[in-house]
Design a protein around this nucleic acid. Sequence first.
DNA 1: ATAAAGGGTACTTATTTAGTGCTGTATTAA
DNA 2: TTAATACAGCACTAAATAAGTACCCTTTAT
Lengths: 146, 146
Amino acid sequence: MIKISKLADYAVIILTSYVDEQGQLFSSSQLAQRTKLPEPTVSKVLKLLSQANLLHSIRGANGGYKLSAELKNITVLDVINAIDGTLAITACVEHANANSEQCSHAGSCALKGRWNIVNTHVANALEKVSLQDMVCPVNEPRTVNG
Amino acid sequence: MIKISKLADYAVIILTSYVDEQGQLFSSSQLAQRTKLPEPTVSKVLKLLSQANLLHSIRGANGGYKLSAELKNITVLDVINAIDGTLAITACVEHANANSEQCSHAGSCALKGRWNIVNTHVANALEKVSLQDMVCPVNEPRTVNG
DNA sequence: ATAAAGGGTACTTATTTAGTGCTGTATTAA
DNA sequence: TTAATACAGCACTAAATAAGTACCCTTTAT
Ligand code: FES
Ligand code: FES
């Protein structure tokens, strides 16, 4: 099944929780409370987001995390790249990126690296949606009963 | 990690192996040989493809599978749907499709079903690529050393 | 100095996916 | 009408991956 990892899902929830207080600083425990997600997991996600420079971290007492950019300038692809590493839809694409040994299906395969086409299409699709787009406008009917 | 399942990958390889003999009938063991994939796995994939009507199966001695449509009319999305079921990029989308209980993040989440947007974008992307597109043109330089 | 907060890494557990095996049914041909 | 071939369906096992947890280190404000 083609699925976005739970951690990436959490990451989107965490980042979008900044929506009305962009630029503000929150500690990992504050973010856990605000999103109602378990603190250790939130902490793990925050570390990854900070490594990818989607969040800027401030250490020490009264430290925390703040957005490095506005939500409208962060794409879903950015988040996935931050959490899961570079998008590689199949093992074949992964090999191509890593420039490592040949694809396991080798000579017998009619595709010969053509998965890259699909990978690019998916990446473009994920790049089209910003986190701001992901936030539900206040008065819009919800598509799910969450 | 967002990744296409191995079985779906196999399915694409199997289906594209028909490229120069579309309309022809092959048994599961023939297809296994042609693609150099393990027979039990090929057999499993073929059953799924046949259930999804991408292949038409003929039982009994001299039976086998043949394409239900031309490769140019089968999309990567069709294959993924056949193997993995309807595309649902996150648990949230899955709930929405199943019309089941609410998303686990419930009230605290700013998204409220907005993953559907991303799901649709990805589905569109996968629908743009046909299996014919996936086949490497004979004289085109390969992008991978497979 | 001490407490608060992030950084990094490694380990364990849970979940998912892939792979295998078995039994049944349809079809052909001797 | 029997034997052989080939697909159908289900259920089980094993392997791979992802998620969650724990621990210890570094930074900074008071
Ligand atoms: S899948 Fe990699 S070359 Fe065929
Ligand atoms: S992720 Fe489903 S409503 Fe928030």
